[in-house]
Nucleic acid binder design. Sequence first.
DNA 1: AAATCGCTATAACGTACATTAGTTTTGGAT
DNA 2: ATCCAAAACTAATGTACGTTATAGCGATTT
Lengths: 248, 248
Amino acid sequence: MFTDKFLRDRRGVELDVHERAILEKAVFEIRTIDARKTVVQAGDTLSVSMLLLEGFMCRYLDDREGMRQLVAVQVPGDFLDLHGYPLKILDHDVASLTAATIAVIPHKALDDINATMPELTRKLWFSTLLDAAMHRAWLFRLGRLDAVGRVAHFLSETNARLVPVGLSDGKRFALGLTQADISEICGITSVHTNRVLRQLREERLCIFRSSLVEILDVEGLARRGQFNPAYLYIETISDRSGVERLTS
Amino acid sequence: MFTDKFLRDRRGVELDVHERAILEKAVFEIRTIDARKTVVQAGDTLSVSMLLLEGFMCRYLDDREGMRQLVAVQVPGDFLDLHGYPLKILDHDVASLTAATIAVIPHKALDDINATMPELTRKLWFSTLLDAAMHRAWLFRLGRLDAVGRVAHFLSETNARLVPVGLSDGKRFALGLTQADISEICGITSVHTNRVLRQLREERLCIFRSSLVEILDVEGLARRGQFNPAYLYIETISDRSGVERLTS
DNA sequence: AAATCGCTATAACGTACATTAGTTTTGGAT
DNA sequence: ATCCAAAACTAATGTACGTTATAGCGATTT
């Protein structure tokens, strides 16, 4: 089942058996991708969208000198470029961080879903708006937090996202990111990322080792990054991540 | 015609006469809003969405101490919270900047459109993804530009957005924003915003006077802010804004 | 075993921006 | 015409982060 993890545990929009079957049938092929490969470039016209099954990928914008700003990290169960279905032309690049496996879904198949399955269409729409909500949380991170807060926020978010898809036990997870990747996510230099990670280690909040992230104090880390998981729309997040669900 | 400006000049998704009529009929009421009022709060459950007809509004996240980070500025023709239709619960606040007029559209009416008009549904979806594309451009702004670049980018973007809806002639537009607002958009302090605006003035790039923004050198300002309008998906932008359309 | 490469680490120094604390200007209300 | 609050503006000082440079370390290649 390729679509197992898609919208898993998301409030009120999990797919029912029939919807899942339809989406499964829409899969045209399964592809594997090496680590650190660009799969779609800004300006490309798309005729397929991709669902990430395994590994980690990212989306980014860059300036002319090749400085990159990551705008999203995608984890298994995420669509990589479903927004490319209504938009047709992408405004950014999509690339793999680790080796990855994806399911390719032609826009033709999505046209059929759009024409005949309004409920499922709205759930697909929902999933793209989840990305937008994450963009907003990232804007808060870059606009209002210091470097330590930014990294703390990112690691808290990633942990919270990996729990529903079974890739975090609530405090430990494997992440194929280097310190340079963290820099491009948090808008700081890799030198400073190194300083920040040391500080998080010394404050006994989190140990980052590229291959393994271990959060020593889930609540403390969330507090340091002002992380409030409400925007992830995950069911019963309080039970699973140790962070209380916050309201308005 | 309330929906005149909605998706005006957007590549390939302008509404046809019939679609426009449907959307008009979905309008339940017209409301006016005073300047500086919050209309929706994070955590609220929504049963209507709002189309901005006149004035400027914004969306923001704040931390506990009331520091705000704006995540969007909305101009006439924009839906304010259409993403609240699939999401139901908002992750951020919506507020007016100036006095404003809005058209209120019940989610019930959107349910009908969703169920019976797949093409129009996809155009509504498109419009929410345009917001997401702007979020990404804002992430680039905060993550990769210095203070002068951030302000230059924001003013260039706003100018480009106001042209299609007839609120900029390509270099001059009225904007109800204070320097403090610019600060909350660009993630800098108001003191520094003041310095940045002076610099833009002295470099003969742009004069900002709250009530009136005058861009003296459209291309120069865009270059300073690394502004590339492709993500706005506006037709023939090169003819109208003086900025050449950029490809991948 | 040597060489290469990517990643982590850390030190010294410079700077863009924040902070604090004002003064001046503007514009709407009475 | 005067008043008042909000906004614009400025200066002095501090600091978080950038920049540059170098070294160490483990994995992979030859």
